[in-house]
Design a protein around this nucleic acid. Structure first.
Lengths: 225, 225
DNA sequence: GGTTGACCGATTGAATTCTCTCGGTCATGT
DNA sequence: ACATGACCGAGAGAATTCAATCGGTCAACC
């Protein structure tokens, strides 16, 4: 097999960096492998020593970005020393998501950025929803959130809501727009009460579960199938 | 002026009916004025005795459908004899919305149904959000819902959430789909607690306001600008 | 007066052609 | 060994043409 140095080389890293910049700027279709190679300062052939195809390169990039997104989420969450709350977790998740163009693109099926890559369906969205389902189920187990709504329904709902919020830029008329952070904060306030268990469970356990599952999600998403 | 019998004739009504069927089935672009005329059993010229243009016909249809949507919402709400709750209001609103292809299309910017009509921006979405803002503001006034989140933000949030839920069919992977009604019901449960005021106000007053504003919305949306 | 449908010009989009870009390979050079 | 970039063939898309359609009008007809 040709392009498969299993260890991530430094060149590979640089490739992903320039690829990220170019893809984010011009989209998948309008960024050629040659563009990426030239911008990285290597030849096109060298790109194929690192990745077997353009698709594979893009997939690797997506996985890296999803991993980074989870890490960023976790970072924000852990360094948040205020009161633990669901509001904050949601805030961190959505804020991190809105920051990363690739995660955002996958979650909203952004045609501009993804272009013809949209045909290839990724497991990324599915895995994200699965992770959310597991997260909610575990939180219900320890009594951190209400358990009268199936975890699967909650995951579905949260994914739909995230989709709506992240897409809001595209369809809400300007005069009714609200800063993203304000919207996210308000959503957090709603969920804080809306998801609360009848009898509050152990907040530390909940915090632990979130960190644990996010970490699991990070490693799962960061590595290709 | 040519096409402007101010009173809605019976022919006009029949026109709108066949137009609704054809537009819903084939979309705006692929439905010709001739198709509508023929299917209605009149000549193309007669269409222009009722409406000055194809766009105007479509706009009239949209307004009629929005009016019907509000009426349907109101009907469901009023005949719901269970406990009053925000959950139910939201359920009725979303269920009614999901039932009407034109309201759904406008709310989700459905390219298939709206086609080239998408360029013409309607006031329908704006008016809907405005009405929601007013609704939330009034409910806050009488203490029916929490008032620590600006009404405008709530309206923005609810619109985004609705968008996400109604669009969920298009982007949620099949294996994670949840029946629309289940999702809506769960959302209702969340909002019921999430939006509750610290000290509950008069539920009858809230109910009255909702009916009042929805009725106002109905007449406003049903008549062209 | 009310209604029709033939008619008009603009627009669209189907069909076709063709250029050139791009993903991927590999003989060659370092 | 590794990296290069000329090279290849497929195919996307730009350019062009052209015929049909469609929105809208109006003289003619009930």
């Amino acid at each position: 097999m040709s392009g498969a140095s299993p260890i991530s080389s430094e060149r590979r890293e640089r490739l992903l960096n320039t690829a990220a910049a170019l893809f984010a700027r011009w989209g998948f279709d309008k960024t050629s492998v040659d563009d990426i190679a030239r911008e990285t300062g290597i030849s096109k052939g060298a790109v194929y020593l690192e990745f077997p195809s353009k698709d594979a390169l893009f997939m690797a990039l997506l996985h890296r970005e999803f991993g980074r997104h989870a890490a960023e989420w976790l970072r924000r969450f852990e360094q948040d020393h205020g009161d633990w709350s669901f509001a904050r977790m949601i805030q961190h998740s959505l804020a991190a998501m809105n920051t990363n163009p690739f995660v955002k693109a996958i979650m909203t099926r952004d045609k501009r950025l993804l272009g013809s890559f949209l045909r290839r369906d990724t497991e990324l969205l599915k895995d994200t929803i699965s992770a959310r389902t597991e997260l909610f189920a575990r939180l219900q187990e320890v009594g951190a959130i209400r358990d009268d709504i199936p975890a699967q329904t909650l995951a579905f709902l949260m994914t739909s809501i995230s989709f709506g919020l992240i897409s809001s830029d595209d369809f809400i008329p300007d005069e009714h727009k609200v800063p993203f952070d304000d919207g996210v904060r308000a959503l957090g306030l709603l969920l804080d009460r809306g998801l609360a268990a009848e009898t509050p469970g152990d907040p530390e356990a909940a915090r632990e579960i979130i960190i644990q599952i996010t970490e699991k999600m990070r490693t799962a998403l960061a590595s290709p199938p």
